[in-house]
Simulated scan of single mutants.
Amino acid sequence: MCVRYLGFVLLVWFPGVLHAQIAAQPCRAPNLNGGNFVPERDSYSEGTTLTYSCDSGLKPAVEGWWASSKCQNSTWFPEPQCIDEKACTPLTIPNAGHTENSNGWFEEGHRIRITCDEGYELKNLDATAICINGTWSSVPVCEKSLYACGEPPKIPHAVIIGHRYQEVFAADSKVQYECEDGFTVEGADSKKSIFCMSGIWTEGPTCIRNCGNPPSVPYGVLRTEQWFLKYSCSTFYKLEGPETVFCYDDGTWL
């Protein structure tokens, strides 16, 4: 009985130990052609960071003349590389994207075509960048479209659903609001959409408290003011009691 229990414990315990050993595998010294790094060791423990530089005529495959790499799960990230000094490191353009090279850098003379993000357009219709002598020339610029909209308006007691946050929306974009519990849009609906039209958002919803039908007052005249009501009396009648009632969060008029 005890032997069986001990065997069960070992079966449960050993996989965890093996997993910990695999997760903590060290990194071998990187094979850095045309460069040198510190500290120099045969192997490096998980989380170790090394710094490297490249020989004359070469440069790291990242920005700057020296770079660092970290040991993560037995792999160096990013991979230490020394490339031709006339090659180009990846290009970053605000509000735009482009096809990336599998090796992480681009040879001299390489051309990339830029695609602007939604709501942005190319300035001067120039969509190409060229790697020349280690730098990118004629770098395109993506600017906000004249017909795009900024972030949608904030509506009291409502949130935007089904759409991630962003600062710029392309023309004809649609976002949908939903009122919080206890509130509805006019017409007893809890949702309403708005649209980006020529750089301007269409009118947003108004979320009003959902209190149902207001109290009935014989010979009374009712005026609605979003979340409260104001009564007055018909000719030859006078009001007894408060002239204003409020809609409370529990859905009652008081």
Rank of each mutant, 00 (worst) to 15 (best):
V141C: 01
S68I: 14
A129F: 07
N133W: 11
K174C: 04
R111N: 12
S232Y: 14
I130L: 10
P60C: 00
W253K: 06
P214I: 03
I155D: 05
P39H: 04
S53H: 11
T48M: 07
F14L: 15
F14Y: 15
F183W: 12
C27M: 08
G64W: 15
Y219C: 05
E121K: 11
S173N: 08
V3H: 13
A171W: 09
G162Q: 10
C247Q: 09
W136N: 04
C149S: 07
G241E: 03
Q176E: 12
G109W: 10
T49V: 15
T135I: 10
E46G: 00
A87I: 08
G7M: 05
A188W: 15
A170E: 13
A148P: 05
C196R: 08
T135K: 09
A158R: 06
I114C: 06
P90W: 02
G251N: 02
N95Q: 04
G34A: 05
V185Y: 06
R164F: 13
G109A: 07
V9W: 14
A20N: 04
G109C: 09
L11R: 13
C211W: 10
C233P: 13
P15T: 01
K238N: 11
C71W: 10
N103C: 02
R164W: 13
G204D: 04
Y237V: 09
T235M: 11
D249L: 11
V141L: 11
N36C: 08
E40Q: 13
